[in-house]
Computed example of a mutant assay.
Amino acid sequence: MKRKFLIILSTAYVIFMACLCFYYFSKGETHSYQVAFGGMLCGLVPLCLILFTKIKFNMPIMISYFAFLFASQYLGSILGFYHLGWWDTFLHLLSGALLSFVAIALYERMTHQHTRNDISYWLVFLFVLAFSVFGGVVWEIYEFSMDQFFNMTLQGGGNFDTMVDLIADTTGALIIATIAAVKTKKRFNMS
């Protein structure tokens, strides 16, 4: 059931972005059809993983992934919400939290249930925080590279934009990493 829902969700997003891509291409709006084309690729990634691998996905993370794509690609880039000023910072805060949840899911998959009580809550905190902040750094490298190589303007505010984005990513990560550490500490104290 979960697998079918994720296939439908991924397919629907790809079709939505493909329609937008065709529409904006026919109107000659280069930026919008490029964003929509990128949206198609982003929607295909989970679909390909679902169909061609045995990876099991965490449903809340996948729904959050598509909500984030919709908010950043369609609302942010195509409809222009990024001109609100706070939209980009808000999405970076959310992406920091979302990547933290991905880190927690990875942690749970990479460790055995019975050994988790022996792992320090500080290690959980550092793993979740580092994973999430690293994701933010990789994204900023991507933005910088696209601006340099393809003359795009992803870093509209230059260094200031980059630093605000990284601070927002880190803040979202800190919140979730702290919650994960506190839960781990409580579980450790109960055993």
Rank of each mutant, 00 (worst) to 15 (best):
S95A: 15
G39S: 02
A67Y: 10
E140Q: 06
S72L: 12
I50D: 07
V14K: 10
I167H: 03
C21W: 11
T171K: 00
L69I: 15
G157E: 13
A67Q: 07
C19T: 12
T171P: 02
H114A: 12
Q113G: 03
L69P: 00
I8K: 06
Q73S: 14
I175G: 11
P46V: 08
F188A: 10
N159K: 14
G135Q: 02
K185F: 14
H83T: 11
L154P: 00
E108M: 04
D169E: 08
V182D: 10
L69D: 11
C21G: 12
D147M: 02
T153I: 03
I179R: 00
M62I: 15
I61R: 10
E140L: 03
H92R: 05
Y107H: 09
R116M: 09
Y33C: 05
L84H: 08
S10P: 04
D161L: 00
T11E: 11
C48S: 09
G157W: 03
L99P: 00
S120V: 06
S132Y: 04
L47W: 05
R3Y: 08
F131R: 07
I15A: 12
C48I: 12
Y23W: 14
R116G: 03
S132D: 01
H31C: 03
M17D: 09
R109W: 07
H114F: 11
V133Q: 04
G38H: 01
V124E: 04
E108L: 05
Y142T: 10
D118V: 01
Y24G: 03
H112M: 07
G38R: 08
L129P: 10
Q148V: 00
G80V: 09
V45A: 14
F131S: 08
M110Q: 09
S145I: 01
A97Y: 01
G96Y: 01
H112Q: 09
A12M: 09
C42I: 13
L94R: 05
G135S: 07
F90A: 13
K2W: 10
C19M: 15
M62H: 12
S32E: 14
P46N: 08
V14F: 11
G156F: 02
S95W: 12
R109H: 09
E108Q: 06
K56S: 14
A12S: 13
Q113N: 06
K56T: 14
K186M: 09
S77K: 13
L6N: 14
Y107I: 01
Q113M: 05
Q155W: 00
N159L: 14
S26Q: 14
L126D: 02
K185T: 04
Q113Y: 10
A103Q: 02
T170F: 06
I55W: 08
N58D: 15
F52Q: 10
A105F: 07
T53D: 06
S64G: 12
A180I: 02
Y13W: 08
C48E: 04
T53G: 06
F66R: 01
F127E: 04
G157S: 13
K2S: 14
H112I: 03
K4H: 14
T184N: 11
W86G: 15
D88A: 01
I50R: 07
G135N: 03
F144S: 03
S32K: 15
I141L: 09
H83N: 13
F188Q: 14
G38V: 05
Q113C: 04
S95R: 13
A12F: 10
T11L: 15
M146S: 12
I7W: 05
F125K: 07
S10V: 08
C19F: 15
N189Y: 09
I15F: 13
I50P: 05
